[in-house]
Computed example of a mutant assay.
Amino acid sequence: MFTHIERSRPAVLPTTSPSLTGFGMALPETLMASSEIDRRLGKSAGWLETACGVATRHVARPGETQERLGAAAARAALAEAGLKLSDVDLLLFGASVGRQPIPATAPLVKRELGGAAFGFPAYDVNATCLSTLVALDVAGLHIAAGRARHVLVVTAEIASRALPWHDAPETAGLFGDGAAAFVVSAVGAGKASGARFGGFLMETFAEGYDACTLAAGGTGIDFHADREAFSRSAYFRMDGKALYRITAAALPGFLDRLLEASDLRRKDIDLVVPHQASPHALTHIIRRGGFAPDCVFDRVRTIGNQVAASIPVALCMARNEGLIRPGMRVLLIGTSAGVSLAGAILET
Rank of each mutant, 00 (worst) to 15 (best):
F2H: 09
T3I: 12
T3A: 12
T3L: 05
T3P: 10
H4V: 14
I5W: 12
I5R: 06
R7A: 02
R7G: 06
S8M: 14
S8V: 12
R9S: 09
R9K: 14
V12F: 14
V12C: 15
L13H: 15
L13M: 15
P14M: 07
T15L: 15
T16K: 07
P18V: 11
P18W: 10
L20Q: 06
F23N: 01
L27H: 03
L27D: 01
L27W: 03
P28W: 04
L31N: 04
A33S: 15
S34Y: 00
S34I: 00
S34V: 05
S35E: 13
S35C: 11
S35V: 10
E36T: 12
I37N: 01
I37L: 01
D38P: 03
G42K: 05
G42C: 10
A45S: 14
W47Q: 02
L48I: 08
L48D: 06
E49L: 04
T50V: 11
G53A: 09
V54N: 03
A55F: 08
R57G: 00
A60F: 00
A60L: 08
A60P: 11
A60T: 09
P62N: 03
P62T: 06
Q66K: 02
Q66E: 13
E67F: 02
E67H: 05
L69T: 03
A73H: 11
A73L: 06
A74T: 00
R75M: 07
R75S: 02
R75I: 07
A77E: 04
A77Y: 01
A77N: 01
A77Q: 02
L78I: 04
A79P: 03
G82C: 03
K84E: 11
K84C: 09
K84D: 06
L85R: 04
S86I: 07
